[in-house]
Design a protein around this nucleic acid. Structure first.
Lengths: 201, 201
DNA sequence: GTGACAGTAGACAGACCGGTCTGTTATTGT
DNA sequence: ACAATAACAGACCGGTCTGTCTACTGTCAC
C-alpha cells in the first residue's frame, strides 16, 4: 500500500455520494457564502474532496458548475416552498405560506440573500447565468399568479406582481440589514394586499 | 515635441477634471455595470486616462477606490432624492417623491440594481465595504422614519420599516425582471401603506 | 486474470490580478 | 532660470485564476 488515494485529507462537507453530488454540495456552500467569482475551482474541489479532472469531466467548465449550482438552488427552494404550501388548503393560506417559508429561511445562519440576485450581480448581462435566473423568476411569478387566480382575484397577474415586490423586498431587507425580523411586517403587508385584492381591488 | 504625453488615447469618459474625478467617474461606470471584482485596475485606469501610480497615490488600494465609489454613489442618490423631495411640501408627498425618484432611476439605461447590494454580493461579511453599505442603509431608513414622524404616523419606525421593504422590493424586481414598470404598483402600495398608517394603523 | 471505467494527485500552461517601481515630461512658484 | 511637484507610460513581481494533461489506482464484469 504505497499511498492512500481515496479520501484525500479532510472532506469537510458531503463525505458520501458521487463526485457530482459532492461537487454540488461544495459549490453550494462556497458559492453562496462567498460569491461565485471569489471562490476558485481549487477551493471547490478541495472542499468536495475530488480531483480537478473529475470536475471538468462532470461539468465541463466552471460556468456549467455555476449553472448546476443555481438550478439545484432553484429546486431546493421550490421543494421548501412546496412543502410549506402543502400544510394549508385554501389559496390564501398557501400564498401566506410562501412568505412564512421564506421567513424560516431568513433566520437560518447560512442566509446570505437571494442566490440568483447575488450571482447576477457578479455576471455580465446576457450571460448564461441570467437564463437560469430568469427561469427562477418566471417560476415564482407563475406560482403567485396561479394561487391568486385560484383565490379568485379579479386581476391575478397584478396581485402576483405586487406579491413579488414584497417577496423581493423581504429578502433584500433581511439581507442588507441583517434583520430577519422584517418578516412580521411583510406578513401583515401581504395579507392586506391579498384581502384588499379579493375584496374588490 | 517628442511624444504626446497628456491624453493617452481615447479617454472615453470624463475627459476633464482632476485625476481623482476621472478615476471616480471611470470606477462608477465600470464597477456598477460589470461588478467590482470583475473589473480590474487596468480597465479603470485605461478608462480614466490616468496612470496607475496616480490611482495608488490617490486612493492607496483598490479597496479604497471601491469605498470611494460607493460613497459617491450614496451622495448622488441622496442628491437625487433630495431634489425630488424639494418639489413637494407635505411629508406624505415627500415620501412618495422618494419612490418616484427611484422610478426615474429604474428607467435609465444604466440601471443595474442597487449598487450596495451588488457590491455586497461580491464581498465577504465584515469587509470594509459592508460599513459603507450600512451607512447607506441607515441613511435611507432615517429618511423614511423622519418623514413618517413629520406626517404624524403613530409608529414612525414601523411605517419606515415597511416602506424600506417596498423600496427594496421595487429595486430588486425592476432589476431581476428588467421591468421598470413595477413602479406603478409600488406607488399604489406605498400610498396605501402611508394612508393606512396615518388613519390609525 | 484482464480490460474498461471512474476516480485521484498534481504538474503545467497561459492569462490576468493587484501593487511597486523606474524613468520621463509638463507645469508651476519663486 | 531652476527646483519642486505631479502627472505620465509602462516594465516588472509574486500570486492566483481556469483549464489541460499525464500518470497512477482501485473496482467490477466477464
Amino acid at each position: 500500500m504505497p499511498t492512500k488515494t481515496v479520501g484525500t485529507a479532510a472532506e469537510p462537507a458531503a463525505p458520501g455520494g458521487s463526485a457530482r453530488e459532492r461537487l454540488l454540495a461544495a459549490a453550494n456552500e462556497l458559492f453562496y457564502r462567498e460569491g461565485i467569482h471569489t471562490v476558485g475551482i481549487d477551493r471547490v474541489i478541495e472542499r468536495a474532496g475530488v480531483a480537478k479532472a473529475s470536475l471538468y469531466n462532470t461539468f465541463g467548465s466552471k460556468d456549467e458548475l455555476i449553472r448546476a449550482y443555481l438550478q439545484e438552488r432553484h429546486a431546493r427552494t421550490a421543494g421548501r416552498i412546496g412543502a410549506a404550501m402543502e400544510r394549508y388548503s385554501t389559496p390564501r393560506e398557501k400564498l401566506l405560506a410562501i412568505f412564512e417559508s421564506q421567513a424560516d429561511y431568513f433566520t437560518s445562519s447560512e442566509f446570505r440573500g437571494c442566490a440568483f440576485m447575488n450571482a447576477s450581480a457578479e455576471t455580465q448581462p446576457g450571460s448564461s447565468i441570467e437564463q437560469v435566473s430568469d427561469e427562477y423568476r418566471g417560476w415564482i411569478r407563475a406560482l403567485f399568479t396561479g394561487l391568486a387566480e385560484q383565490a379568485g382575484a379579479p386581476d391575478p397577474a397584478a396581485l402576483a406582481g405586487r406579491l413579488v415586490v414584497l417577496y423581493d423586498g423581504a429578502g433584500l431587507s433581511a439581507r442588507m440589514d441583517r434583520n430577519p425580523g422584517v418578516f412580521a411586517d411583510v406578513r401583515v403587508m401581504a395579507a392586506a394586499l391579498i384581502d384588499s385584492a379579493l375584496a374588490g381591488g
